[in-house]
């Protein structure tokens, strides 16, 4: 009799907890993989494809499945560092196969040479190029991510990638010079 009571009460508990768990599974269901979202938020969103995937999100999905975190040249070392922190992996240096770290650039169309073919407009992943067929095109520089994707399609090579100029507003202090001097050198060395 006691064994029956024990079985019944445990069964009862199991049913109750099972129901709660079942309810929670439906009520608090997470759409998609949250880790992919987090990785995608860290990637620089240039959609340049240098990682070998067609955009940042596919690469984020690949990383979540275990792909290397050092395939993103636009993100550079800082992105690798943040990804390593997030995923608990080791921060490795950038894979040179996928490109090198370059200073940030924006595309610039030499407008007098543009023939208005709209090919770059179709290539731009963020709709940062303005123009129409047989009309001159121009770049909305604020929206350009510097992905280089418009360069190849251009039949007349009228697009330049120009480095972003530092203005007094975007300028920032650098860390003091690393050169350390010992005290006996103090009067001989050039102080910074």
């Amino acid at each position: 009799m006691t064994i029956l009571t024990a079985i019944l009460s445990l069964l009862g508990l199991a049913i109750i907890f099972g129901a709660i768990l079942g309810f929670a599974a439906i009520r608090f269901k997470v759409d998609g993989d949250p880790i992919v979202e987090q990785i995608d938020a860290i990637l620089p969103q240039t959609q340049c494809g240098q990682c070998g995937y067609p955009g940042c999100r596919p690469y984020a999905e690949a990383i979540a499945k275990g792909d290397a975190i050092n395939k993103c040249p636009p993100g550079g070392e800082s992105t690798i560092g943040i990804l390593a922190d997030l995923l608990g992996r080791e921060a490795i240096s950038l894979d040179a196969e996928h490109g090198e770290i370059k200073p940030k650039t924006v595309a610039y169309i030499r407008e007098e040479e543009c023939i208005g073919c709209t090919k770059c407009i179709q290539a731009c992943p963020v709709d940062a190029i303005l123009g129409a067929a047989k009309q001159m095109h121009t770049i909305i520089t604020d929206e350009c991510t510097g992905c280089d994707l418009c360069l190849d399609p251009c039949p007349v090579d009228c697009i330049d990638m120009l480095p972003i100029e530092t203005t007094p507003k975007t300028w920032k202090w650098e860390q003091p010079d690393k050169t350390k001097l010992i005290i006996s050198d103090a009067n001989q060395g050039v102080a910074t």
Partner: peptide, 21 residues
């Protein structure tokens, strides 16, 4: 401070690029 501000700015820009993409 400069680094942090720059990173924040880049985050804003990349969020925008994602939305546009």
């Amino acid at each position: 401070k400069g680094d942090i501000k720059k990173q924040e700015l880049e985050q804003v820009k990349s969020d925008r690029a994602r939305k546009r993409f």
